[in-house]
Simulated scan of single mutants.
Amino acid sequence: METPEGTIEIDLKESPLRWLASRKDASGVPFLSPHEVEAGERFRLDFTLAGLSPKLGSSWQAPVSRGSAGGHGLDYADVVIAARQRLRHAETAVGPDFASLLLDVCGFLKGIEEVEKARGWPVRTAKVVLKLALAALARSYGLRGEAQGPARSTGIRSWRSAKTSELKTG
């Protein structure tokens, strides 16, 4: 995934969100809308950029303290701070209950069944609550499923002036 901060590699097969997005209901409609998936992936990207992902091994590379991230003229620390600020804003916008679920599923990539078991929720509950959390997250990011506006425009209907219209018709 190419971002202003640089290239981030995300394995979509490991994402519980992508798995859930591939599921459809009885009528064939996807369980998650595209804007809900986009919101979850944006949250995951910020989680990754913020450096909150657990490290599974040792890194023998020298830590980056100065220099640009991804060749875009951004300092590495600025990228991390900006990602953490966006995460904090998203968590505040959706509330603490939804935020913890989003962190588990979109950030730490915990599966739906694992979340339900850890929280003592009934089967299929996490799926429904996650959909609500993603809808709230999408609203906080300004993402919508469709363009919304008045049913009928009250603005300009023609670029021609009244004189031009009269000359052509008369």
Rank of each mutant, 00 (worst) to 15 (best):
H72A: 15
T125I: 03
L103Q: 09
P4K: 15
L52K: 09
A26F: 09
R139L: 12
E5H: 12
S161H: 04
D11M: 09
P150D: 11
E41W: 01
A26L: 10
S161P: 07
T48M: 05
V123E: 08
L132Q: 13
A118S: 12
P34F: 06
V123R: 12
A118T: 08
A77R: 13
R119L: 14
S153A: 11
A136S: 14
G57S: 04
S161G: 13
I112K: 00
L87W: 00
G155Q: 11
R144G: 07
K163R: 09
A93W: 00
P54T: 05
E41H: 05
E38R: 15
V64S: 07
G67E: 07
W60C: 12
A90T: 07
I112G: 00
A93S: 14
S59T: 13
K127D: 03
S65F: 12
L130P: 01
K168E: 11
R152V: 15
E113A: 15
S22F: 07
R84D: 03
V128D: 07
P30G: 12
P63L: 11
G142N: 06
M1E: 08
A126T: 10
T125F: 09
M1D: 04
A138V: 06
L74S: 05
I10A: 10
L132F: 04
G51L: 02
D97I: 08
L17V: 15
S68K: 04
W159G: 13
V79L: 10
P54E: 13
S27P: 02
Q85E: 12
T48S: 08
L17I: 13
E9Q: 10
A50E: 03
R124M: 12
A82W: 03
G28T: 06
S58A: 11
E36R: 15
G120Y: 04
A135E: 11
G6K: 03
T3L: 12
E114D: 13
R84P: 00
S165H: 05
H72Y: 08
K127I: 11
A99E: 03
P30T: 08
S33P: 00
L143V: 01
P96F: 04
G71N: 06
T169W: 00
E114T: 15
R119F: 04
V128A: 15
S27I: 04
